[in-house]
Amino acid sequence: MRGLTGAGPERARGSSQAVIAVGAALAAIALFVAACGTGGTGTRDEGPAHASAVAGAVASPTPSPSHTYRRVDAVSLIKQDPEVSTTVKRGLKPCSGDDYPVDVTYGDLTHGSVNDVLVNVMTCGDYVGVGTYVYRDVGGSYKNVFKAEDSPVVAEIDGTELTVTKQVYDSDDAVSNPSRETVIKYGWKAGRFTELNSHDTYYSQAGGDAAAAPDN
Score class of each variant (00 low, 15 high):
M1H: 14
G3Y: 11
L4N: 14
T5Q: 11
G6Y: 10
A7L: 15
G8P: 01
A12N: 15
A12G: 11
Q17K: 14
Q17R: 15
Q17G: 11
A18R: 08
V19C: 12
V22C: 13
A25F: 09
L26W: 10
A28H: 04
A28D: 03
L31R: 06
A34E: 11
A35G: 07
A35D: 10
C36A: 12
G37Y: 08
T38M: 12
G40I: 04
G40S: 06
G42D: 10
T43F: 11
T43P: 10
D45M: 07
E46W: 12
G47W: 07
P48D: 12
P48S: 15
P48G: 11
S52W: 01
A55I: 03
A55W: 05
A55Y: 06
G56S: 02
A59N: 01
A59W: 01
A59K: 03
T62A: 12
T62V: 14
P63K: 05
P63W: 02
S64P: 12
S64E: 12
P65I: 06
P65T: 09
P65A: 08
S66V: 13
H67F: 06
Y69S: 12
Y69A: 12
R70S: 15
R70W: 05
A74R: 00
A74S: 07
V75A: 08
V75Y: 09
L77Y: 03
I78Y: 00
I78N: 00
E83V: 07
E83Y: 05
E83D: 11
S85W: 05
T86M: 06
T86H: 05
T87Q: 13
K89D: 04
K89G: 02
R90P: 01
L92Y: 02
P94C: 07
C95N: 01
C95V: 02
G97I: 03
D99Q: 13
D103H: 02
D103Y: 01
V104R: 02
T105D: 01
Y106N: 03
D108G: 05
T110Y: 03
H111V: 07
H111L: 09
H111T: 09
V114Y: 04
N120Y: 04
V121H: 00
M122C: 03
T123D: 03
C124W: 04
Y127M: 05
V128N: 12
V130W: 00
G131I: 00
G131L: 00
T132S: 02
V134W: 00
V134I: 05
R136W: 04
Y142H: 10
Y142M: 06
Y142F: 12
K143Y: 06
N144Q: 08
A148G: 03
V153A: 00
V154C: 02
V154Q: 04
A155K: 02
E156N: 10
I157H: 02
D158K: 02
D158R: 03
G159I: 07
T160A: 08
E161K: 15
E161V: 04
T163G: 01
T163V: 13
V164F: 09
T165M: 04
Q167V: 06
A174L: 13
V175S: 14
S176Y: 09
P178F: 06
R180L: 11
R180T: 07
T182D: 14
T182S: 15
I184A: 07
Y186Q: 02
A190T: 10
A190G: 06
E195G: 11
L196H: 05
L196M: 14
D200N: 13
D200M: 09
T201D: 06
Y202R: 15
S204F: 11
S204D: 13
Q205S: 15
A206G: 14
D209H: 04
A210N: 10
A211D: 11
A211K: 14
D215P: 08
